[in-house]
């Protein structure tokens, strides 16, 4: 019954590698970008907050499927090229959307550290920057861990949508195999188990990290 995986191993291995690569890149870009935007919106004053809020709100309200298709089919026209690599398009679309959500988590985390903590840092003769790096950010980071973990899990699951722009990731490769082998049950069920395990590993790792530092976020 599981012969199908051996017979089509080339496709599956490529799919697995593409899925892992895609998600690794998206996690790094979306967390870094989200952190930058979130910090800028929290500390940047009213104009920065409003201006950067526009793309964040747009990205949070457009379906990811539409974003991916737009980046793949429409954005090349904007930039005057004829073609964009599907993998690159998927990285851009997923990172933008994930980054938008993560920027909101970062902003909320920073805002959740009460202002009297900033006062306490300033009263100790710290500069504003020192207060942010030594007092506010560490506490915010602890509180952000669980929601960022959830968002990364959503991103991993949503990466399957990249199949619609022909990124050879695991779901897309599985569909090809199913079309050829007529074995949807075993392939799709295995695929579900795979995503379950991958997401659980990521979520549990972040949970474990959080449990270790949670006491330090208490106030």
């Amino acid at each position: 019954m599981f012969d199908v995986f051996f017979d089509y191993r080339g496709l599956f291995i490529e799919g697995l590698l593409v899925t892992l690569q895609l998600n690794a890149i998206v996690v790094v870009l979306s967390v870094a970008g989200g952190a930058l935007i979130g910090v800028a919106r929290h500390y940047g004053g009213k104009i920065v907050r409003v201006v950067l809020g526009i793309p964040v709100d747009i990205l949070r309200s457009i379906p990811l499927l539409v974003v991916l298709i737009w980046v793949f089919f429409a954005s090349p026209m904007v930039f005057g090229t004829r073609y964009i690599d599907p993998f690159v398009a998927a990285v851009i679309g997923l990172s933008l959307t994930q980054g938008a959500y993560i920027s909101e988590i970062v902003r909320g985390g920073l805002a959740s550290v009460r202002s009297t903590q900033t006062r306490a840092g300033l009263a100790l003769g710290m500069t504003r920057t020192q207060v942010v790096t030594r007092v506010v950010a560490p506490q915010a980071l602890i509180r952000m861990l669980p929601p960022i973990g959830s968002q990364v899990a959503i991103g991993i699951k949503d990466s399957t949508l990249a199949s619609v722009i022909a990124v050879p990731e695991l779901f897309r490769q599985s569909q090809i195999v199913i079309g050829d082998s007529m074995q949807p049950f075993v392939v799709l069920t295995t695929l579900m188990v795979f995503y379950f395990v991958l997401v659980m590993i990521v979520v549990r790792l972040i949970d474990m990290l959080y449990t270790r530092v949670a006491a330090r976020g208490a106030s």
Binding site: T116, R119, A120, A123, L124, G125, Q139, R216, G217
Partner: peptide
């Protein structure tokens, strides 16, 4: 900042750094 280094402050709700 230089002035605040010379002035200590104690708050009603302690405001210790929890981390």
């Amino acid at each position: 900042v230089e002035v605040r280094k010379r002035v200590g402050m104690v708050f009603q709700n302690f405001e210790l750094f929890p981390h």
